[in-house]
Design a protein around this nucleic acid. Sequence first.
DNA 1: CGTTGGCACTCCATTCTACTGAGTGCTGAC
DNA 2: GTCAGCACTCAGTAGAATGGAGTGCCAACG
Lengths: 354, 354
Amino acid sequence: MQTSDNSRHEGAGPDPLALDVRKSAILNAVVTEYIGSAQPVGSQHVMDAPGVSVSSATIRADMAALERDGYLAQPHTSAGRIPTDKGYRFFVDHLGGPGALDPVGRQQVRQFFDHAHGEIEMMLEKTSGLLADLTDCTAMVVGPSHELATLRSVQLVGLGPRLALLVVVLADGAVQKQSIDLAEDVDEGRLADAARYLAAHSLGRALSQIDATLVTTGDPATDAVVSVGVDALRHLGSAEAGDQLFVGGSSHMAAAFDAVDTVRSVLTILEQQLVVVTLLRDVLDRGLSVAIGTEHGVEPLASCAVVVMPVSVDGVVTGTIGLLGPTRMNYPQALAAAQVVGNRLGQRLSESRR
Amino acid sequence: MQTSDNSRHEGAGPDPLALDVRKSAILNAVVTEYIGSAQPVGSQHVMDAPGVSVSSATIRADMAALERDGYLAQPHTSAGRIPTDKGYRFFVDHLGGPGALDPVGRQQVRQFFDHAHGEIEMMLEKTSGLLADLTDCTAMVVGPSHELATLRSVQLVGLGPRLALLVVVLADGAVQKQSIDLAEDVDEGRLADAARYLAAHSLGRALSQIDATLVTTGDPATDAVVSVGVDALRHLGSAEAGDQLFVGGSSHMAAAFDAVDTVRSVLTILEQQLVVVTLLRDVLDRGLSVAIGTEHGVEPLASCAVVVMPVSVDGVVTGTIGLLGPTRMNYPQALAAAQVVGNRLGQRLSESRR
DNA sequence: CGTTGGCACTCCATTCTACTGAGTGCTGAC
DNA sequence: GTCAGCACTCAGTAGAATGGAGTGCCAACG
């Protein structure tokens, strides 16, 4: 029954990277074809594929074997084959290769980064749009974390009688703010004093390194302001304030599925920033660059695949970009786009902090 | 043929706020029913509606008249009637009333604003989520413009040899930044000097009131920095930097339509911030609070309706909230929700600047 | 032994038909 | 002006027939 020579009987054995060269070619053909057409592909079509020069009967036998091993599935008897998640996985890992961006896309990327200007948030937002355009997927960009960036400026601005704003500038150009409720009226002079002490206490450090040590200025009223200031700084450094997410091209999800229910559930997920960020981080932490179907734990995205790519700023991974598409997305293209854009973005961010 | 006593013959005459009391009741019933069921409604169903106590035959005659006058339409012969845009318009203007939020929603709003905290952007973002939840529509929130807010702080922070960041704090708590490329290396002292002069030039004014008058400090190098600083300030005051848009609940659009194409085109529009902001502003400028179907000029949204509501901070209209749904959205509910949330949001924003 | 052409079989998709039933428009009577 | 009655229309559903793409199996071939 089993025709291949790398012996393994029926059932889905562990076969780590087995598969006959011809079976690989056939799987490759099926995946490629299906990505393009979204239609089950039959043995006839596979015959035309390069690297496969056997009759359709032989292909059928191999496809049956591939189905037994879990790489392919049949929507119903006497239909063509569709890749399973495992099939896509093999395709991504052993076939398909890295793929290259088409010249048009390459040009688009170049142009984008040549003309990219303005503040970081704007750029990340636009980057998500670019990625979405390039890949016909939904793009997710998680802004670089500011954990390691050191404080360049700390300022307290009075906004009302008992209200002030703590404004912090980090070395990477990020500006964060935190409103502060004061126990009693504080005049500008005292605010400025407090800000000076806060600065002395924190400048040059990262937000996460601010300790709660009290600074004594000699004046108890000022001390009180400094104290809430320190609290505010530590709050900014905590996880709550971090991780901006930019999602672009969510409309592509409506083009990817024809079941409107699927679209809705996917969009619902995309609206939950925390879920998305966690998902991307999880995948990355597991050392993957692609998560297919149920490989990530988010059930409503079972018919989706995620491509993730770290963004390194000055050699340190701080940001993430992700692509979300149907499991039958164009993996080589998505990987190539994510890689190129990720690199350029990292470069760009590194430059801008010199 | 025409049964009503307020004489007007066939054809879609101007009839500004005509319509027989019974015809109104029938139209009301059709719209209400259709909003709930999304199914064409027939004369039988209208019979059950309150305020209509005539036989189905009479209702049929009236519905035929309503169709002739353009308030109703038939998907095909011998189907029930569906409201046209004109029908919805009449419903919104003369029927349906303001509507009230259900107690659950009211509770939700109260709870939200009681617990709302954190920075303004976060709050606006969450407000869009709240509105979307309340109405099953997609919610759009345009942040209050900072045109009128006066400058409370101007600061220049050096980030690199020839790179600085202009950080501006406005009286309403908004923080804006703009990176500045310097022609030559500038040390911290000179930056501080320049910032001081900038502050003297601009503090207490609104961003839009910054004029290009050069400030002479006596030192040409400092003057150069001040000059780019002024440019940057004016840039921040220009339209480009304004109008943050927060969109929440776009997944509801996938539930509203069963044609996946419609969903895609609507989502595509929602991704274009400028289009959305312009749309909302347009509708508001025309003095409308509801724009139905083609009343706003955006063709891909022809099957959608928009509800807009201004947000007043200290009595001045500065922000906008909008709801986007299918033309058969629940107008009374949407209007009520928009009104309540708009008011509370305005109050909240007014408070926070005291 | 792997490969191949042939063949019977399966079953989705399409088409056609018939039928149902919700809904209409009309008409004549009250 | 309203209403009951009636003939008519037509989307939607269900069932039967058809076509065709695709499969699995097998016997034969090099």
